[in-house]
Design a binder for these strands. Sequence first.
DNA 1: TCAACGCACCGTAACGGTTCAGAGGTTCAC
DNA 2: GTGAACCTCTGAACCGTTACGGTGCGTTGA
Lengths: 367, 367
Amino acid sequence: MPGPPHVRRPATLASLAAELGVSRTTVSNAYNRPDQLSAPLRERVLEAARRLGYPGPDPVARSLRTRKAGAVGLLLTEALSYAFRDPAATGFLEGLALACEQANQGLLLVPVSPDHVDVTAVHQAGVDGFVVYSVREDDPHFMAVLERPVPTVVCDQPTGVEGVDRVGVDDRAGMLGLARHLTGLGHRRFGVICMRLAAGHNDGPASAQRQESITYPVQRDRLGGIRDGLAEVGVDWADVPVIERFEHSVEAGRDAAEELMTAHPDLTAVVCTSDILALGALQHAGERGLSVPEDLSVTGFDGVPEAGRAGLTTVSQPVLEKGRIAGELLLQRGDRNRSRRVTLPTELVVGSTSAAPRSDQRFFSGW
Amino acid sequence: MPGPPHVRRPATLASLAAELGVSRTTVSNAYNRPDQLSAPLRERVLEAARRLGYPGPDPVARSLRTRKAGAVGLLLTEALSYAFRDPAATGFLEGLALACEQANQGLLLVPVSPDHVDVTAVHQAGVDGFVVYSVREDDPHFMAVLERPVPTVVCDQPTGVEGVDRVGVDDRAGMLGLARHLTGLGHRRFGVICMRLAAGHNDGPASAQRQESITYPVQRDRLGGIRDGLAEVGVDWADVPVIERFEHSVEAGRDAAEELMTAHPDLTAVVCTSDILALGALQHAGERGLSVPEDLSVTGFDGVPEAGRAGLTTVSQPVLEKGRIAGELLLQRGDRNRSRRVTLPTELVVGSTSAAPRSDQRFFSGW
DNA sequence: TCAACGCACCGTAACGGTTCAGAGGTTCAC
DNA sequence: GTGAACCTCTGAACCGTTACGGTGCGTTGA
């Protein structure tokens, strides 16, 4: 009946070596390079380790020496727990996790304090590289990541940062296709619901000035795609109300739709820059007694599973693939010459939430 | 236009100190203890750091010295990506992430190779503790975790491990309540669909012998709860077919239900040990032309959001809370006297998938 | 018989920090 | 004038490991 193994200081490679009368190198080799010492000696070392309760080489000390942490850091600006709630983020994470486990690398979720800005966690993270998921261009945590001397891959945004790889989709083209789908159906009176456009809460209409100073490139591109599509049929962007929400949730979408439809009851199509918001808009349409798509068309972006079940018309993007590629980009960077850019295709998914406006609605569209 | 900052070896605390003609301690203090040196000198240090491209103290070296990694390791036996697909796991992770970010700790997802057993990742992980989520009693990765000299918290299973904290629910009592609900409605002919019971694929009936050698305590308890509930009304457990599935997915549940109902078409209630499996069973009932709950009652376990939307009768457990508490247990272990056990309550949620069997069905129940 | 070779193991020098016990110097109260 | 308290900074030890370049010795081929 041995006492607790903590009678003295925990065993180290050195103490084990001393106990056995061999060098530290030999003990190290017993673990890392079995071919560098004879089998009997190796067994002696391992046996002594068992006896002394030595748990094997300390991972941190090894990391220091080998300059490898064996993990990839993931930075999300949202509170960490958000990653598990947003289905688009979840899909991305699944893909990233896939790539990591294939390379036998850990995935470190870097904590980001939701309230006050504190980048110590970024400095603290023992990782070989960072994946940054969809953050603001001027995000302080992202700045801290750039200071770290490790490779970095950005997903979605920010775009065009020097020296970092990026994976994303052509948000503008995706939205342009969707807009054409709607204008082709005959829609002319649009409203838009979008995610946050820049730092700071701005729950309400996004003024022209606000739209000028967007710091989330993805939102900029998606709005730009709609604008371009509408311009093709002569709809002036200035006449299109855009409602912004800080929170990204079904509830926020519902709420935004209420604000939008109350101020503009004659809209025939509500374009949302995400499926989550669109699901909320659908919910509000029901509450308002509007039939979708007869009275109102509603569209989203992302192509999350929930949207599929709801029959939402949306622009689908390969979120899992995005995550997988982000991981591979980071882990397989053979040449680190210059930044690579991967743009994945989007697909217009026409569901049951978009249709031609009613003829009496269309009648009004002439003004 | 400065050249790339990688002209020479990257700057270290020592090189910075040499450059400035101060001691390393002073540089270290400039970062960690601003009150230990004069403001002007501190500014000089920081300025030099900026100039030389010094990114601040290396996190790994700091971890080695301070014996703190600033991260918590999470071990799942399933492939890492599974964590983002199973809604019960996702809820748990959200809670755990919440606790971590509150303590400003990272969350390291430890990669587990799905195919061959390889515990190096566990040894590799630079963490201050482990959370183990629902693994087999004899899981080799778990064994490797126990060898690491860091605190460990187990969620759900394995139970009763010496020296580790555990958070979970009373699975047996939860299932017992559910069983009573069904027997109270008049059901007597049951079938059961359960998750994997031990190592190795066994897609099909779980023999009595298999049930004797369960290595997943949660499944053992849930089955035990059903058995006890049925025994109260005189239903012999030996007469209850139990179908096991290795995969945990809606599809597996559907498939298992098909196997079950084909072999036993006279069942009036199918009890599943998880909501995911139950959703699959519901799907199969529809395909078979059975009305739920008129022709067949179907129940689950967990209380995931999807189950709520489907109106599933189930035993709901606070998954998010479980994750949060697991994190707190690990991070706030003031006294480390002995293992703590937290058991959270479950709640029977009666939905629209359970009802009394039809009178003609009940007629048969007399034999 | 002897140089060449391979095996098994070893010593030293990092890896990049933090910590602790002071060393000097200055300020202040008495 | 003096001792105590304080402020700022330093030197050396330490964290636990792996990389690198050996050394000693038995074997082998000419």
